[in-house]
Write a protein that binds this DNA or RNA. Structure first.
Lengths: 336, 336
DNA sequence: CACAGTGCGCAAATCGATTTGGCCGGTACT
DNA sequence: AGTACCGGCCAAATCGATTTGCGCACTGTG
């Protein structure tokens, strides 16, 4: 452990360059013109000394932390890691710090997490957690922290929204199954009050309706967006009076759980029962048989969130909230 | 978008409580005694006003940011997300902010990432990237930023190290394969200069040696810690003069790639060839056949790193660097 | 009664940047 | 020639907390 060398401050730079601290600040921020000669001089001095402005001092004065927070329901869900990577793509080159928190742990529920990041005075929040209540959103809004929500229903007073076209995606899945001749199509979904669940349900029922069929409530199950949740839901469907010949999962993790359950029952996939997922996480192509699913452009979603947040922080778009809907893509593999 | 309400400062709190800002600060920090009555008064006022100290102001004065950074080679590797979750477990309750960066993107290589987090004056860094050079480490050390390295070889002047017992883990895997009667055991490993690669190689060769056999260099391959890398390495081994009857992968992702390659060749697992992984990520239990692997206590590793960093920041242990080695556990499934 | 000791609170300096008002010399315009 | 303007720089105020030296009032002791 070597000893810490004291980092130079703006005053040292100014002294070494023979100018005032004001001038140094101006060449850094470009808020006022500086002659080319002076600018060059200051810049070389900065480089020589390895000067980096102290973010605390800057933040104190500007009332900005140049950091944004990502709040996800579950960090181990690969979909969200990809979103995080996409955010990082954009944020790092803008010098922003990205902090990532999941609200999946006991004692680390959403209100706590929100308090935590608000206490740190982040400039913006990307909120991907369905369980968010109006109170959660309100507590963010009243601090003036910019907010972009992921995959939620748009509300003008709740900030921007970035989401994929879940309704359309699920519609495509069901269409595909119908085209393949499956007739009793069940749905094992995630949390009932989660927005993605609702939108995927909507796509499912709409596709059935447009095909002149109607959804059988016995074949619709809500649980959690997890492998265990999928297995539990599938068992219930398999045990019903008229078991399904196809099950669409609310996401890929659920679909994997459905596969577990199908195997327990000795059902062959896709002969006895077809199974589909949603998101197209890495694991979707790993399982056997490979999972038919809908590709969700997670990384692009992350990038889009970052750009919207940066635009907002730059004062663009004034106060009109926006909604961006990204395209999906059906990926047909072996499970259907 | 509601309008921002101005957050109260310490001065408002002091005024409302009828005391000086000093006193408020003292009840917050406990650095000097405050009478019980005053303390109670101040605390209720703080709660009423919803006061939160401004981290920039505090950081400016204390020269601490109360934030730490995690740098991983690849955020989409589930092992690292679990480490991140473990860090978060410990850090959040201490009020620290965790920022997570991967160094996997073009234009986002390790030196850049290190510069980025150092510019943000984080208090500590958890570095999980093998590719770290001495220069990278030195640039961290000279800023006085505390460092904990993950899975690297211990060096007293490079800060603390937390790692799993990779040598022992791989030893167990090979022992297990030998016990099952496999005789030509190949190794498809990750990056040659990565520490985990080296330690896993060591466990592999040592186990063979102790069994009175010697490692055949034709059966050892270095590539990348990824699915594609695993497939490529396995193809080479399968094409060699005396192909292996078992392949141990440097990690689970590699093992999955090896499976891909085995399937291409029409080899049955584990009859024609046994395959093992390392880390025990979620996907290891998803693939068919389920993967024999070594459970790596990722979350616990993350927690341990966080505790060590916090201890260091609290000034414990002075300057003596420590190494913590965590236990592993062989998980036998269907692929061997 | 005087004096040392102690618990508690205040005023002011400080951290390192940004930002604003103003000064100075030179150019353009009338 | 006089006035107005402007580019380029500086000095000083400011952001919101922490920290230090000091003073006040009260207690216990010789």
């Amino acid at each position: 452990m070597r000893e810490a060398k004291k980092q130079p401050g703006i005053a040292e730079v100014a002294a070494a360059a023979g100018v005032s601290v004001t001038t140094v600040s101006h060449v850094l921020s470009g808020r006022r013109p500086v002659s080319a000669a002076t600018r060059a001089l200051v810049e070389t001095v900065i480089k020589e000394l390895g000067y980096r402005p102290n973010p605390s001092a800057r933040g104190l004065r500007t009332q900005r932390s140049e950091s944004i927070a990502l709040i996800v329901p579950d960090l181990t869900n690969p979909f969200y890691t990809l979103v995080a990577a996409g955010l990082q793509d954009v944020l790092m080159e803008s010098g922003y710090l990205l902090s990532i928190t999941d609200a999946a742990q006991p004692g680390r529920a959403l209100p706590e997490v929100v308090r935590h990041v608000l206490a740190r005075r982040v400039d913006g929040i990307v909120l991907a957690s369905y369980g968010a209540t109006d109170d959660d959103i309100a507590s963010i809004a009243e601090t003036g922290t910019k907010l972009v929500r992921l995959g939620s229903r748009f509300r003008a007073d709740f900030g921007d929204v970035v989401r994929a076209d879940d309704v359309g995606g699920m519609h495509d899945v069901v269409d595909h199954l119908l085209a393949r001749g499956y007739r009793r199509i069940g749905l094992v979904n995630g949390e009932y009050d989660a927005q993605p669940s609702q939108m995927r349900l909507e796509g499912y029922t709409r596709a059935l309706r447009e095909a002149g069929r109607t959804a059988d409530p016995d074949l619709i199950h809500f649980g959690t967006f997890s492998r265990a949740g999928g297995a539990a839901g599938a068992r219930r469907l398999f045990d019903s009076a008229h078991p399904p010949d196809a099950i669409v999962g609310g996401n890929d993790l659920i679909a994997v759980g459905v596969m577990d359950a199908a195997r327990e029952r000795g059902l062959a996939i896709p002969r006895d029962v077809a199974i589909t997922g949603y998101d197209d996480i890495e694991a979707a192509s790993l399982v056997t048989p490979a999972l038919t699913t809908v590709h969700n452009p997670a990384r692009e979603i992350g990038r889009t969130c970052a750009r919207m947040l940066l635009d907002r922080l730059a004062g663009k778009y004034d106060d009109v909230a926006r909604e961006v809907v990204l395209a999906h893509r059906l990926v047909i593999r072996e499970s259907s």
